[in-house]
């Protein structure tokens, strides 16, 4: 048998249950309990992020390294402080320098690998054989991928009117394909939202079991 939960765990779990119920109460109508839970969430999240940010980033990556005598990290510290200067309107211009530094670094880093991984590789994945694939099912799937990409691109070409010509009809097919893909994506979204609710209900069940265990039940 599992160990009975501690009293502190019980308080934590029941706080979670109460706050979840407060959030769900919005489904009936907007109310002060919902607002309270919302504000607690924002406050706790900000505090949590701050603590994690300090103890897992600033302390080991900056303070400890400076304490170890690695003075190069002073540059990073100065850039970080400059980023915060937007709080003071007179010194707000200072934040542009570290921002420009970050934008420059990430743009430089990303251009090549984004091109390679998210453009060229994706184009390559649409260049598929339509015959000699070994099975007619694969050939059909390849044809759908090819037709989908081409007609989808035609829809986003706006320099020619989408009239009754072959071009316009292809663009309309592109719209259909886009709609089907949106439908599939929306199906996944419904699945995800249901999962969130299921997760909460399962949490309630776990809390109930823990409570029974806490009070000496089996």
């Amino acid at each position: 048998m599992e160990n009975a939960p501690a009293f502190s765990d019980m308080i934590g779990m029941w706080t979670g249950v109460c706050l979840s119920m407060c959030i769900f109460s919005f489904l009936y109508k907007d109310n002060p309990f919902y607002k309270l839970a919302e504000h607690i969430f924002v406050g706790v999240s900000a505090g949590y992020w701050m603590c994690i940010g300090y103890w897992q980033v600033i302390y080991p990556d900056l303070i400890q390294r400076l304490q170890g005598g690695d003075w190069r990290y002073l540059i990073a510290a100065v850039l970080g402080i400059m980023l915060l200067m937007r709080i003071f309107p007179k010194c707000a211009w200072m934040e542009r320098w570290p921002l420009a530094f970050m934008v420059g670094i990430f743009a430089g880093y990303n251009i090549v690998y984004t091109m390679q991984a998210q453009i060229l590789k994706q184009i390559e994945a649409t260049v598929l054989p339509l015959w000699g694939t070994g099975s007619w099912q694969t050939a059909c799937i390849n044809l759908i991928v090819l037709a989908g990409v081409l007609t989808g691109l035609m829809y986003f070409y706006f320099s020619r009117e989408h009239d009754n010509s072959l071009w316009g009809k292809s663009a309309r097919l592109g719209v259909w394909i886009l709609m089907i893909s949106f439908g599939a994506a929306f199906g996944y979204t419904v699945m995800a939202r249901m999962s969130l609710f299921i997760g909460r209900v399962m949490f309630f069940q776990d809390v109930w079991r823990a409570t029974v265990q806490f009070f000496g039940g089996s």
Binding site: K121, Q122, A125, S181, T189, A192, S195
Partner: peptide, 14 residues
Amino acid sequence: TAVTAPEAYPFVNA
């Protein structure tokens, strides 16, 4: 997550 799966499928396809 299910929401992000459609974004990740092209990477599987490629």
